[in-house]
Structures are given as C-alpha cells and as structure tokens.
C-alpha cells in the first residue's frame, strides 16, 4: 500500500498536451482529403428547375457533368447570349461529347462502367432544342443513364 502512495505523490498530475496538435492535424488532413474543390469553373448561368421526384446521385466518380445555359456576363461578348454547352471547364459543341465521355470512362474501373451517369445541369429558361441535341448525342454514344439535375421543391 505504502509503495503505491509514494508513486502517486511523485507523479505529475498534468496531462501532456504535446500530442494534441497531432490529433488536430490528423483531423485537418482528413478534411483536406475529403474536401472536393469544385473542379470546373462555371462559365454559364445555371439555375436548375425544381422538382419533387428526386433521386440522389450515388457515387461521385461515376458521374460526369454536362452544363447547358447562357454564358455569364464576362463571356457574353465573345460567346453571345444564346445557350451553350459546357463540358469540364470549357465551352464545347455537341460533337465534343463522345470524346468527353470517353475521357471520363477511362478513369472509371471497368466493372463500374455500366453505372456511369451523365448529370445534365440545365438552366430552366433554356429551350429544349439544344437539350434534345445533347440527348440525341448521348444516346448515339451509348450513354443512356441520364440525370436531370434539379432542386428539391418544398411542397
């Protein structure tokens, strides 16, 4: 008994905080890894319509994004105000879609390629003409799973 008491009396009651920074850094690195910076600069004004029958997109790396909308103010001088297609971070035409899809496809493991989804982020004010052309091109390229991106509607 007396032995224990002696030891206890000698020991320093302070908890060492030296490892605290390491713990915090670990958390920091976790968040840095998890954070996905928006990869594409938005060159179009897109305000997606709202809908109620929404489905969540499951795996992020299985999704490629196609944007359709009017160019933002900065680009209106060069590209005009009619709706344009944006793939990745540049203005594109319908003919660029197959290459864009292929570039995304090779990054995806082979077993998951059948589940690749194309997310169409389209401005609500755009007319169906360009959307239809994009859809036709997607069908021709064999990309059949499409997601019309929309905001949840509060009912």
């Amino acid at each position: 008994m007396s032995k224990f008491q002696k030891k206890r009396g000698k020991s320093n009651p302070e908890v060492s905080t030296a490892s605290l920074p390491d713990i915090i850094f670990m958390l920091l690195f976790f968040f840095m890894m998890v954070t996905v910076m928006r990869d594409a600069e938005m060159k179009l004004m897109i305000n997606t319509p709202s809908a109620s029958e929404l489905v969540k997109l499951s795996e992020k790396n299985l999704v490629n994004y196609l944007y359709i909308g009017k160019p933002v103010k900065k680009f209106q001088e060069t590209y005009g105000t009619s709706p344009r297609l944006q793939l990745g971070d540049k203005f594109s035409t319908i003919a660029d879609i197959p290459l864009f899809l292929e570039k995304h496809k090779i990054k995806v493991p082979e077993a998951k390629r059948g589940r690749i989804t194309s997310s169409l982020k389209v401005d609500g004010e755009v007319t169906m003409g360009i959307v239809q052309d994009v859809k036709t091109q997607l069908r021709k390229s064999g990309q059949l799973i499409v997601n019309y991106s929309a905001k949840p509607r509060n009912e």
Binding site: V55, L57, T117, R139, Y148, S149, A150, P152
Partner: peptide, 8 residues
Amino acid sequence: DKGIRVKL
C-alpha cells in the same frame, strides 16, 4: 446532387 433519373 439530386435530380430526376432517366433511362434513355
């Protein structure tokens, strides 16, 4: 990202 899923 949410949306309406469509199979073309």
